[in-house]
Simulated assay, not measured.
Amino acid sequence: METLQTSLLVLLAVAFVIYRQLRTRPAEGTWTLYTAAAMVLLGLVTGGLFDPDHLALSVVLFAVEAVAALALGAWRARTVRIWVDSAGVAWSKATGWTLLAWLASVAARAGLYFAGAAAGLTVSAGSVLLFLGLTIGIQSYLVARRGRALTGAGRQPDTFVE
């Protein structure tokens, strides 16, 4: 897939994910986890994650990108509003802070991209897909976990009897 096509696909996917986050929806987040997993897989399959001419530097940049993706996703997850309705269903909706965190995520990714290019690394669309898959996946997972914590889902029933 060409870089332009991949870039457009990534922009569409991110726009759709943000659109869905701005709507009130169940906090379970399974659809978003599948989307994130597909992005990670596509990023890995696309290849080009490491520059063979600058292997050590590209591995360091990859590690920094992965940590940044996870940290930014965790930050965005904390900005999502989660509540439980009268039926006991957990709901989520992004806030203005979530949008601000998304802008920071895009700026951080662009900064890492340009830092790699300035250092002489060959950059690929696969790394962008991997970054987005990781950041969207961790955000979705943490939002779903917060929703389960509010509803008590996933907890083992108490076995202690007085």
Results as ranks from 00 to 15, higher is better:
1 M>H: 12
1 M>G: 14
5 Q>H: 14
6 T>C: 10
9 L>C: 13
9 L>K: 06
9 L>Q: 07
11 L>Q: 09
11 L>A: 14
12 L>E: 15
15 A>V: 06
15 A>R: 01
19 Y>H: 10
20 R>D: 15
20 R>L: 09
22 L>P: 00
24 T>K: 00
27 A>R: 04
28 E>S: 12
28 E>V: 07
35 T>N: 13
35 T>S: 11
39 M>H: 08
41 L>A: 06
46 T>W: 13
46 T>D: 10
47 G>K: 07
49 L>F: 00
51 D>G: 05
55 L>S: 01
62 F>E: 06
64 V>K: 00
69 A>L: 01
69 A>G: 03
70 L>M: 09
71 A>L: 11
72 L>V: 06
73 G>V: 00
74 A>E: 08
76 R>D: 12
80 V>L: 02
81 R>E: 07
82 I>T: 15
83 W>K: 02
84 V>Y: 03
84 V>A: 05
85 D>E: 06
86 S>A: 14
87 A>F: 04
89 V>A: 07
89 V>I: 13
91 W>A: 05
91 W>V: 06
92 S>A: 15
94 A>H: 03
96 G>V: 04
98 T>V: 05
99 L>F: 11
99 L>E: 10
100 L>H: 11
101 A>N: 05
102 W>D: 09
109 R>G: 14
109 R>S: 14
109 R>P: 15
110 A>R: 08
111 G>L: 03
111 G>T: 00
121 L>T: 14
122 T>M: 12
125 A>F: 12
126 G>L: 01
126 G>F: 08
128 V>S: 14
129 L>F: 11
131 F>E: 02
131 F>A: 08
133 G>I: 00
133 G>V: 01
138 I>Y: 07
139 Q>M: 07
140 S>D: 10
142 L>T: 09
143 V>W: 00
145 R>F: 00
145 R>S: 10
146 R>A: 13
146 R>W: 05
149 A>W: 08
153 A>H: 15
160 F>L: 15
161 V>W: 14
